[in-house]
Design a protein around this nucleic acid. Structure first.
Length: 322
DNA sequence: CATCGATGTTGAG
DNA sequence: TCAACCTCGATGG
C-alpha cells in the first residue's frame, strides 16, 4: 500500500535499529525458509530505499529485496524509533523543511517503564500499538520473513517481492528505476526525468505512475501532483512545456520530503489554514482530488471525476485541470 | 459475517 | 488487457 515516502521511513527503521547488528532471519510462514537461511546470522550492513523498493545488505554480500506491493506490511516490535526521531533522521539525510512538531511522546513514556515497545508500520502511517509482554512476540498470521536482533523484531507479511539478490542483481534492479528525489535531488536527476517525459507520447498521468520514469509515485501522489499543477492528465508528455515538467519534479520532491518527515501524505500545504482546518474537520480526507469522485472540487466546486486508465483509478477536476 | 476494494507489480494471453 | 498475488479495513446486511 505504501508509496515512496513510507518505504523510505521503513528503511530508516532498519538503518537505525538493524544496521550494524547480527540478524536472525527466519520464515515463520515457511515460504521463504530457504532465502532466510542465506542471510541468517549475518550482520546487516546497509538499508536502502529506492522508490517503492527496499534493499537490505548483509555482511556476506547478499541483499534482501522487498517490495510491499498493495498488501504488504512490516510490523516492528521492540526498539523502534517514533515519529519525532524519524523526522530528525530524515533531516540528517539532507531534508529541509524539518518540522519542530514533536509527536513521539510514546517513546519516552514507554521506554521509561523499560518495556519493549510495539510499533507497526503500515501503509502511509506509523502506528504505535502499545507494549508487548514477551520479546520477541509470537508471529501473527502469515509472516514471510522475521528479522530479529537482540532488541528489535521486524515481521514482513504479504509482500509482492521478497527475494535474495546478488550485488549485481541489486544494481540491475535499481537501474530499471527512474530517479528518486530523496536519493538524488541533483539537477542531473531532474534533467533525466524531464528528458524522459518530454520524449514520450504517453499521457502524463501514466508517466507519473511509471516507476522507470520516476520512482516512488503511486496513485494518490499521482492524482494530487496533477491537480496541484492544474494539469490535464491526458496531455502527452512530449506536449508539455519543459518548465511544467520541471515543476512536477520539484513538487514531487517536496511532497516526498514532507511525507517522509510526517509519515503522512500531506498534499494540501497550499491551502489556507482556515480552508485546511475546514477540510480536515469535515472529513478525514486530506486530499485535493484523490478518492473524491462526485464531490465538489475544493477550488471551483465542479464534481471530481474518476476514470479508469491503465488499470488504475484516476481522479481529477475537469474544470481546473481542463 | 460476507463481500469489496486498495496507496502495486508481474506475467500470461 | 486482465487475472493473480495476498492481506485487512471499510462497508453492508
Amino acid at each position: 500500500m505504501p508509496e515512496g515516502h513510507s518505504v523510505h521511513r521503513i528503511a530508516r527503521q532498519f538503518a537505525l535499529h538493524f544496521v550494524g547488528h547480527e540478524v536472525a532471519a527466519s520464515s515463520p510462514q515457511g515460504r521463504f525458509a530457504a532465502g532466510a537461511a542465506r542471510i541468517d546470522g549475518h550482520v546487516m550492513t546497509q538499508a536502502v530505499a529506492v522508490g517503492k523498493q527496499m534493499f537490505l545488505e548483509f555482511d556476506n554480500g547478499l541483499w534482501l529485496k522487498v517490495h510491499l506491493g498493495i498488501y504488504g506490511a512490516w510490523d516492528f516490535a521492540g526498539d523502534v524509533t517514533a515519529d519525532a526521531t524519524m523526522a530528525s533522521a530524515a533531516g540528517r539525510m539532507g531534508q529541509t523543511n524539518q518540522k519542530g512538531t514533536v509527536v513521539g511522546a510514546h517513546e519516552d513514556s514507554l521506554s521509561s517503564i523499560g518495556a519493549p515497545r510495539r510499533t507497526r508500520l503500515r501503509m502511509a502511517e506509523q502506528e504505535v500499538e502499545g507494549t508487548v509482554d514477551v520479546f520477541p512476540p509470537d508471529p501473527v498470521g502469515a509472516v514471510r520473513v522475521r528479522l530479529l536482533t537482540e532488541s528489535t523484531c521486524a515481521d514482513l507479511r504479504g509482500p509482492t517481492a521478497c527475494e535474495i539478490l546478488l550485488p549485481e542483481e541489486v544494481q540491475a534492479s535499481i537501474d530499471k528505476l527512474g530517479p528518486d528525489p530523496l536519493l538524488d535531488d541533483s539537477k542531473a536527476a531532474e534533467d533525466r526525468f524531464t528528458a524522459t517525459v518530454l520524449k514520450k507520447p504517453t499521457p502524463i498521468c501514466l508517466l507519473l505512475m511509471d516507476q522507470s520514469v520516476v520512482a516512488g509515485i503511486g496513485n494518490v501522489y499521482r492524482a494530487e501532483l496533477l491537480f496541484r499543477a492544474r494539469l490535464n492528465p491526458h496531455i502527452p508528455g512530449r506536449d508539455l512545456p519543459e518548465k511544467t515538467v520541471r515543476a512536477l519534479w520539484k513538487d514531487w520532491a517536496k511532497l516526498l520530503r514532507i511525507g517522509v518527515e510526517t509519515g503522512q501524505m500531506m498534499t494540501m500545504d497550499g491551502l489556507s489554514k482556515e480552508a485546511y482546518d475546514g477540510a480536515m474537520a469535515s472529513r478525514a480526507d486530506r486530499h485535493w482530488v484523490y478518492h473524491r469522485t462526485g464531490e465538489p472540487c475544493r477550488v471551483c466546486g465542479t464534481p471530481i471525476v474518476m476514470e479508469e486508465i491503465g488499470g488504475r483509478k484516476l481522479y481529477w477536476c475537469p474544470k481546473d485541470q481542463a
